[in-house]
Design a protein around this nucleic acid. Sequence first.
DNA 1: ACCCAGGGTCATA
DNA 2: TATGACCATGGG
Length: 213
Amino acid sequence: MKRENLERVYQRLFEAYGPQHWWPAESQFEVMVGAVLTQNAAWSNVEKAIDNLKAADSLELEKIYNSTDEKLAELIRPSGYFNVKTKRLKNLCRWFEQQGGFKAVEKTKTNNLRNSLLSVNGIGPETADDILLYAFERPVFVIDAYTRRLFSKLDLINGDENYETLRCDIEAELSPDVPLYNEYHALIVRHAKEQCEQLSKCKHCRVEAPIVI
DNA sequence: ACCCAGGGTCATA
DNA sequence: TATGACCATGGG
């Protein structure tokens, strides 16, 4: 893992696609909700769930937390796994309430906040890092399946490293730059989707990358 | 009809 | 620690 390579990959992606304007949400809380809803789900389906929440005027901590499981599950149905995600959303809301909301959370050190998030049932490393980076603006490099595929295709990594190892190795080579991490992950996702469209059928990204590093 | 998506938990060995 | 089952919708 070399800094030079990581930066070159970023530059190529940015030249190819430009700024991605992540996270697509109107509030920090919407980012948190979206991070849970997007677990193993297509973003187009998450948008439908978010739209339902907005239409029901329910995209607020209190409304989600006080809603019955049945009503909440119905609203987020399009995002899949709606019964599981109903509980996860409530777990996240309870956690956030106990933390004391955004003002209180701002004072917590990133590593402590991360461990705290990870202790919430239903919040794993990727969801936690989405929230840390895109809602709380912490310099955390998000690892997902696309990141592994791209970096291992480019021989930057082996591919079988565990999440923490990968994240720490990458963060050790880059400056803790929130806008950079924001754009980098968004670009990797964009690049993956771009390949899917070029293939027209989603034989998922086992083809040559159109961007040669 | 099949495959996958901007994952995570839990039980089992 | 490392697999496997499970959760479930919608688009290609």
